[in-house]
Design a protein around this nucleic acid. Structure first.
Lengths: 373, 373
DNA sequence: CAGAAGTATGTAACCACTTACATAAATACT
DNA sequence: AGTATTTATGTAAGTGGTTACATACTTCTG
C-alpha cells in the first residue's frame, strides 16, 4: 500500500492517464446530474444535448442526431423513446424518405428547455470559473489532444512502437534443408485462405532446391524466437531479370513489418546478382501485399483477366536503374528541404515530408520504367 | 445544423465540458483495450489496475482495493471473480478477521503481469509523447482540477450560484391576517415530519395575533412568486429578552438560504425593539436549524432531557451586547489581515479567512455569554 | 457481557450506453 | 428495369460499472 499511496490511478501517471481523465469527467457529470435531480424538473441530464439540438433545429432524424451528438444510433433511439414517454418529443414520418423518422420537440419539450436555461447558465459559469481556476486553457488543450488523436490514434501510436520493438527481435536467415517444410507450410497457409494450392504451386513449394536455389535464387526466412514466421523466394527468370515469389507471413504476425524485412533482403540479393530489373506476380485480392510492393517501387506492368490462373494475376515490375535514379532525385530533394528546415523534427516538417513524398510518387507512378529508361 | 456545426459537444464549450472530457477519455481507453485484445493475452484492460495493485502488495482485501482503485466494492468483487475464473487470483480467509477475504495473485497472475509489462511500457511512452505534443502540463492541470473539486465540488459551485439567484427573488413580508393559515401550514409540515403537533403548538399556530403580535412580536413570511415558502416568529418573552420561535421553511425550498433571510429579519426586529438578549428552543434532531442558529451567534444555554416536551429541547440564547463586541473584534482582525494581504482575493487569502474564523469560533464557543458579560 | 453501532462482503437490479445483427427503403449500376 | 449496394432505423444482448439493500462479523459502550 505504501508503495502506491492512496490513489493508484494518480500514482500510475501516464499509464493510467485515460482512467484518471474519465474519473474526473464522471465526477463532474455526476454533480451536474445531481443538480437537475434536486431541481426536480421532469428531465434527465443525458437528454440535455438532444434537447438542445432539437430546440435549435425544429426536426432531426436519428442519424443526424447520432452524428451531431457523437452517440450511436441505438442510443438516440433509446433517448428519443424515453423523451416521448415524457411527452417531450413527437415522431414524424419524413415525406421524401419513408425510412426516416423525424424527431421534433413538443410544446412541453420547448418549455422544459426554457425552464432549465437558467440552470444551464449557472452550470456554464461555474464551469468557466472552475476552468479558469485550473490556470490553463483547458478547452484549448483538449482541442489540441482531440486533433492529435485524429492525426494518429492512441492505438496506432502504441502499435507502431510495439511493432518496432518486435522487428528488432526478428532474424532473417537464408535457405537450409531443414527449413524446407516451413517454406511450404507458410505458403500453403495463405494460398488456402485466399485461393487454392494449384499444381504449379505444389511443384515449387515441394522442390525449393530445384525450383529456386538452383535457378541462381535464394529463399529467406523470418525467425522469431525459434519460430519460422515468414518467407520469400527470389530467382533468376531471364539473364538480367529476377523474380520475387512465394512471399508469405503467418497470419498472427502480419501487419508488423515482417514482409518489408523479407522484401529488403530479397531485393538486396537481386542487386548483388547484378539484376537490372525485378518482377513478380500477385493479385488485386492481396491489397496489403500490393501496397508493400508499390512502396518498394514496383509498378503494375500487365494486368491479366482471370484467364490462365484461377487467381487473376497482376504482374508488377521495377527497373533497378530507374530506382537508383529515383533515389538520387529523392536525396537531392531531401537535402534541399533539410537545408530549408534545419535539423528540427517539428510536426510541420513531417507534414512537409508527406507532401514531398506524395509529390514524388505522383511524378513516378505514371511512368513505366521498362520504356522510360 | 449549421447553427451548431458538426460536433455539438465541442460547440457547447463550458456547458458540455464534462461530456467532452469523458469522450476523450473513453476514446483513449478504447484504443488501449484494442491493443490488449489484439495481443490476445488472456487478460482484460479493466483488470489492469487491480493486477498492478496485487502484483505490488501480495494480498489485499476487497475494501482496500476499492479505496485504492476508487471503485465501489461490488466492482472489485466482480473483477476478482472474473480473474479467479481465469486462475489469475485466489482468495484467502483473513485469520484475524473472519469477514475479510484476501485476494492474492497466483503464479499465473504474476506471469501475465510480467508478460504485459513491455506493452505497458510502450503505452506509457506513447501517452507521455501524446501529452507532450498537447503542449501543456496536462497531468498537472488535471491534478489542479482534482484539487479544486476537492475544495469545492461542481455540485456546490452550481448550487451556490443558483441559491444566490433564487434568494434575490425572495420577498420577506410582515404578518397580515390573510397569511394566518400559511403560518400554521408551514409549521405543521415540519412538526408532523419530525415530532407531533402538541397542544401548545396548536394554540400558538391558531392564534398568531394573540400569541405573537400582541406580545410585542412579529411574524415574517418568505414569498417566492406568490407562494408562501417560509416563516418565523419573534416575540417578547421578558422585558429585555425576545424569543424566536416557529421557524419553518417548506421542504422543497430548504437548504437555499431562506432560513437565514428570515432569521436576519427576526433578529433585526428584536434589535429595533432594544432587546438585550435573544433565546429560542430547538432540538438536536434539527441539525440544520441548530447550525443556522449557531452561525448567528446563538449558543446552547440549557439542554433538557426529554422531560417536559416530547421533542427533547435544547435552549439556545445569545447576548446582543456580546454579539456587538464580537463583531467589533472580528472587524479589527479583518482589518489587520486586510492590511497584511492587500485587496487580493487569492485562494491563499480565503484559506486564511477560514483559519481566522475557525479561531474566532474557538475563542467564542466555550464562553457562556450570560455569565461572561 | 449484552446490545448498539460500525465494518466487510455479498447480491440484485439498474444505468447509460455499446456492439452486433436484422430489415426496409433508397440509390447506383449495369 | 432489375439487381447490388448503401443508408436509415429497429432490436437484443452485452459492458463496465453503479446504487441499494442484506448479512455476517467486529468493536464500542454502558
Amino acid at each position: 500500500m505504501s508503495k502506491t499511496g492512496t490513489d493508484l490511478i494518480k500514482h500510475l501517471g501516464e499509464l493510467a492517464f485515460a482512467t484518471r481523465l474519465k474519473r474526473l469527467a464522471e465526477s463532474l457529470q455526476a454533480d451536474v446530474g445531481r443538480i437537475y435531480r434536486e431541481m426536480n424538473v421532469d428531465f434527465e441530464p443525458k437528454w440535455f444535448t438532444m434537447l438542445y439540438a432539437l430546440y435549435h433545429n425544429e426536426t432531426m432524424s436519428v442519424i443526424e442526431l447520432s452524428n451531431l451528438l457523437r452517440l450511436t444510433h441505438p442510443a438516440i433511439i433509446q433517448f428519443a423513446e424515453q423523451m416521448q414517454e415524457k411527452k417531450l418529443v413527437t415522431f414524424i414520418k419524413d415525406k421524401n424518405d419513408a425510412r426516416k423518422k423525424l424527431i421534433q420537440l413538443t410544446a412541453k419539450g420547448k418549455n422544459i428547455f426554457e425552464g432549465i436555461e437558467p440552470i444551464l447558465h449557472e452550470i456554464e459559469i461555474a464551469n468557466r470559473e472552475f476552468l479558469r481556476e485550473s490556470g490553463a486553457d483547458v478547452l484549448g488543450v483538449i482541442e489540441k489532444m482531440e486533433k492529435q488523436l485524429e492525426l494518429k490514434s492512441m492505438y496506432k501510436r502504441v502499435n507502431e512502437r510495439l511493432a518496432k520493438n518486435f522487428r528488432k527481435e526478428i532474424e532473417i536467415v537464408s535457405y537450409s534443408p531443414k527449413l524446407k517444410n516451413d517454406f511450404k507450410r507458410l505458403n500453403v497457409e495463405w494460398l488456402k485462405k485466399y485461393f487454392t494450392v494449384e499444381p504449379i504451386d505444389e511443384r515449387v513449394l515441394s522442390n525449393p532446391k530445384k525450383e529456386i536455389i538452383d535457378k541462381d535464387g535464394e529463399i529467406f526466412f523470418a525467425l522469431y524466437k525459434d519460430e519460422v514466421i515468414g518467407t520469400v523466394a527470389v530467382k533468376k527468370s531471364s539473364p538480367k531479370t529476377f523474380e520475387i515469389l512465394k512471399m508469405a507471413v503467418t497470419e498472427k504476425f502480419q501487419s508488423k513489418g515482417i514482409g518489408r524485412l523479407l522484401m529488403n533482403r530479397a531485393v538486396d540479393y537481386a542487386k548483388c546478382k547484378k539484376a537490372k530489373s525485378l518482377e513478380l506476380d500477385t493479385s488485386r485480392k492481396l491489397e496489403g501485399a500490393m501496397k508493400l510492393y508499390e512502396s518498394f517501387g514496383f509498378r503494375i506492368s500487365d494486368e491479366q483477366g482471370s484467364e490462365s490462373y484461377e487467381r487473376c494475376t497482376v504482374k508488377m515490375s521495377m527497373d533497378l536503374n530507374a530506382l537508383f535514379f529515383l533515389l538520387l532525385l529523392s536525396s537531392f530533394l531531401l537535402m534541399w528541404y533539410g537545408a530549408m528546415f534545419g535539423a528540427h523534427t517539428a510536426p510541420a516538417q513531417n507534414v512537409f515530408t508527406d507532401i514531398l513524398f506524395k509529390a514524388i510518387e505522383h511524378i513516378v507512378k505514371p511512368m513505366s520504367f521498362k520504356t522510360a529508361f
